[in-house]
């Protein structure tokens, strides 16, 4: 079971979290202005990264808040977690793993 660092609560076991799909997929501000293709892309097109993936998690059984994470999908390792609205940390600071 992974340890995940909630940016609000700290390191907690994976059981407390729910995965929330790819991060930084913003819902268009004016959906009516989107073409069908643009709307379909918003709905259905997602990264399938082999490597670093920015994704959403929710600390469902904790503070209940959504946050973002960078995870290396090849190693299933969290490189960083950060709050909604924050930019993803730079690659150089991505080597931090939660400590048991």
């Amino acid at each position: 079971m992974l340890l995940i660092e909630c940016p609000y609560c700290g390191v907690r076991p994976e059981l407390e979290f729910v995965y929330g799909g790819q991060a930084h997929v913003a819902r268009p501000h004016d959906p009516a202005a989107c073409s069908d293709e643009q709307w379909a892309e918003f709905l259905y097109w997602r990264e399938n990264a082999k490597g670093v993936h920015a994704e959403r998690w929710r600390h469902t059984h904790g503070c209940g808040r959504f946050f973002n994470a960078l995870r290396d999908t090849t190693r299933d390792q969290f490189l960083a977690t950060y709050r909604v609205g924050e930019r993803p940390p730079a690659a150089s600071s991505r080597e931090r793993e939660p400590q048991p």
Binding site: M1, L2, L3, D76, E97, P98, P100
Partner: peptide
Amino acid sequence: FGYFPHNL
């Protein structure tokens, strides 16, 4: 019997 991520 089993070794799971993050030293569990």
